[in-house]
Design a protein around this nucleic acid. Structure first.
Lengths: 212, 212
DNA sequence: CGCCGAACTTGACAGTGACAAGTTAGCCCG
DNA sequence: CGGGCTAACTTGTCACTGTCAAGTTCGGCG
């Protein structure tokens, strides 16, 4: 029975949080500004005041996502480990699936938004910084190592979210460690305890078949 | 001009083609059944007869996508080269961006559809088949090599489509060669006197055209 | 010729994004 | 204390969308 005041107080944040919930449940395509307004307890026109339009709301969400990712990547870069940065990437993707999903669908928001561009540049710098530390960067150019690592963890995170890797492992971060060890060899396995899984895996059925 | 008959004749195909065009232009979120009907010159209710609902249309599109991908992967598998299969994957993703994009957004369609499941299983078999040919499969488990390669090319294709790699190269397939060489090292090149990966000429080359 | 069913049309309804105009209330300045 | 300025939110409306139900056309088979 709490009387809701005319001014919500923190509607902007409430709408972003509600958007994350809805996207987690039903994907970005099913997002509705009116439903967000309803969840926040305000009228259907309220979101427009804070974000302009739907793309504006998603743009804010993406900027927030790049800032969160930049934080985790920067922390990993401070530890100076390229593998650790890649695992942080996977950890972000699985921990913030709604942000991650929208971030890589440029049609849904405005990629040229200043806040988005700035946050993305910061994340990019963290990635490139750690890439230079990997031994293989001597043979190949460091930029190529950064791209390769990015592709690997991004592909893993994306496939995991799409449900194509659920049969391969319980934890995506653990899977990322195995995959990184396979691709980059010992260069990436900083402290891998059990690298050779032997013949335990059945590998008979289809790896991509969703369970029913 | 030409009087359109009451029966379109090939409406199902026309709608799928129109869907590909719209998704290429504006992304899957902006897809409208009514617009597709308009492009095909039929009434707004016609699509429902062939696909049931929007998810049904996208399900058909995804099944078609997995069949196309399966064809290219199988051809690469016949050539027996793991690298070639990965390049075929990238070539498909960039050559059929609409199919590829929808295929990995399960919220948009019905992943349990029998046609989708069957086509996906076929693609998966081709991937696993070629993975066993790579020398590194001796050290690591063959399945792990397949997953690592899949993540790498999938991440590259996804990032390319999102526009995050456009500054790195002109051609995504060429970039894929460089990245594969960096990640898998000499292991990725075919065992026989294959030239240094990343500098060799693109093996097939001509089917990269994204335009129809 | 009759008619049956597939292919398509027509009409309706609820939900959605966007816009315009009105209303409330926090807050600063006098 | 109080007048008013402005951000925050409401209300109403319009075009568009997906989906359903019912009607219409037409090819082909008996």
């Amino acid at each position: 029975m709490t009387e809701r005041p005319y001014h919500h107080g923190n509607l902007r944040r409430a709408l972003l949080d509600a958007a994350v919930d809805v996207i987690d449940e039903k994907g970005p395509a099913a997002l509705s500004l009116r439903e967000l307004a309803g969840r926040a307890g305000v009228s259907h026109g309220a979101p427009a005041h804070h974000f302009g339009d739907k793309a504006g709301l998603l743009t804010a969400l993406v900027a927030e996502g790049y800032e969160l990712l930049g934080d985790e990547m920067a922390a990993a870069a401070a530890r100076g480990d390229f593998l650790e940065a890649g695992l942080a990437y996977v950890r972000f993707a699985t921990g913030h699936p709604a942000h991650f999903q929208v971030m890589f669908e440029p049609h849904l928001y405005r990629p040229d938004d200043p806040a988005v561009v700035a946050a993305r540049a910061r994340t990019d710098a963290a990635l490139r910084g750690t890439a230079a530390t990997v031994p293989a960067a001597r043979e190949h150019e460091a930029g190529s190592v950064a791209i390769a690592g990015w592709c690997l963890v991004h592909g893993l995170a994306t496939l995991w979210q799409a449900g194509n890797l659920r049969t391969m492992a319980d934890d995506p971060v653990e899977l990322a460690q195995r995959v990184a060890a396979t691709a980059f060899g010992r260069a990436a396995s900083a402290r891998d305890g059990a690298p050779a899984p032997g013949r335990g895996e059945p590998a008979t059925g289809s790896t991509v078949t969703p369970r029913r």
